[in-house]
Design a protein around this nucleic acid. Structure first.
Lengths: 284, 284
DNA sequence: CTGTAATCTTTATGA
DNA sequence: TCATAAAGATTACAG
């Protein structure tokens, strides 16, 4: 019935990618892609639910929201929302007891550390997190609870998403699945265009796409250079000046006359405008 | 001129690393390290609080907890908890209005993207997050609120830590500072490749400032022209083709090969990039 | 962020 | 080839 993937945790990405697909194949055959319309815009997202998850109500709610739910026994995590996104659900009171749990399996940090090793993108759903603090007045353990959350978020690097109740939990699962299974995962960040009445306003807004440029600087730049192209041209002609020992010192050109723009600004934005190769994993 | 040594300053974050130290020096002199016993196990953690942060109560609570609090004007974020950890605090209702960008305020995404540009390790403290959902029953926008949280956590890769109230917020700040300023190196954990915004995505984001360019087209353009400047150059060389009777028909150049770009697009955006005088009213 | 309305480009069709 | 209409895709806007 349930055949776990052969290759254990050698390549995280591969194994997880395959697990999701394998389960889909098992339930829908090799042409699962067409049947489920995976990747298409308005396709129903598929969510694989661990059959041991206590609350089957989540599965029911997911179906109500319009998801395709598959029950399977999962080695790690409670829900698979895509080939690489695995969600662990914890209710507040569970979280509380896991924080103070015994040394091995019951400790939440250890649990999530294992999850982190096993899957590519773990996510922690913290349902009704206020319950983690116990009855009012029992605040001695407060710093332990928050300490655990900080450790999970900053050290294990696992995203925490709080929800109010089981309904919200289902909603979040649905949204995560929808997002990760969307046409291409790389959809741009939506910019909110302010009601720009004048052309100038809108020109300033274009420049706000650059590094270190917010509303204030964008207007300064348009005021100084009159139009976006003039600024771009000037920026590309701007050079960084170095000290004899090779340390960046300042910049050349008109931009040097405007307050608030230094060599770091020039370096970052020249790269942004000019670089032709993608650099995956680079943190901007 | 001297060529820069490559690994000298690889990115913007470097500046923030120094900011923390610089502020410490400014307030405690060059021997701040001994005075504050930075790095020592039971040292009082130092937290730098943005002087514009509305609630000075947080600062007071931090001192009660035993932190050394310094007030400074910060360019990005509300609290510096270490050389690289910057915390943005948002109350639930603030978060709600940021999602729905009240008239002239930019939305959470733009705010946090800028934070992400400016600092190495941004953290979002979501205080009283249940308030983000508005009055009970107003749950139609539930998916927007949670969608925003998902985007922040999974796409921007910014950790979210929920707190119940201002007291807890102070506690969390204290703990984070204590953790990040402790002497132990917390590199024991195998870290996954951080999924953050890539240069390519950021380049696409720049183009979204133009007329009629959203997530889809911005990516098409970067895919086709490799970098923003290449596209701008090509756009300026693109001409509108007219019929004999003088009606606009199509466009010239490489842009004509990419689907989805017509003469109205070219007209509006050439003007946007080039026009040097301000013009009131709608320009499309 | 989400969902709907408005707008643009493209394709189809007839003059 | 041009003009117009319908279809399809994407952005703009409001909540």
């Amino acid at each position: 019935m349930n055949s776990p993937s052969e290759n254990e945790v050698s390549d995280l990405e591969q194994s997880e990618n395959n697990l999701f697909i394998e389960i889909l194949k098992k339930h829908y055959g090799d042409d699962y892609q067409e049947k489920l319309r995976i990747g298409e815009k308005d396709a129903k997202p598929v969510i694989i639910v661990d059959s041991r998850e206590k609350s089957s109500r989540v599965g029911k709610k997911l179906e109500e929201l319009g998801a395709t739910v598959i029950m399977e026994t999962l080695d790690a995590g409670d829900y698979l929302c895509s080939g690489n996104t695995t969600v662990e659900r914890k209710r507040g009171d569970d979280f509380r007891s896991s924080v103070f749990g015994g040394s091995n399996t019951s400790n939440v940090f250890e649990q999530l550390l294992r999850l982190s090793d096993a899957v590519e993108k773990p996510v922690l759903l913290l349902e009704n997190f206020e319950k983690a603090f116990g009855p009012p007045g029992g605040d001695e353990k407060l710093s332990s609870i928050y300490g655990a959350m900080i450790g999970i978020a900053l050290r294990l690097d696992i995203p925490i998403i709080p929800t109010r109740n089981i309904t919200d939990t289902a909603m979040v699962l649905f949204r995560i699945a929808k997002r990760q299974q969307g046409e291409y995962t790389d959809r741009g960040i939506a910019r909110r265009i302010p009601k720009s009445i004048t052309l100038k306003e809108r020109q300033a807004y274009v420049l706000e796409g650059l590094f270190k440029v917010g509303p204030t600087k964008s207007h300064q730049l348009i005021e100084e250079f009159k139009c976006p192209i003039n600024f771009f041209t000037e920026l590309l002609n701007t050079e960084i000046v170095y000290t004899k020992s090779g340390n960046p010192k300042g910049i050349t050109g008109k931009l040097a006359d405007v307050k608030g723009f230094g060599w770091k600004f020039v370096k970052a934005n020249k790269k942004l405008l000019l670089e032709e190769k993608d650099e995956p994993g680079e943190i901007i």
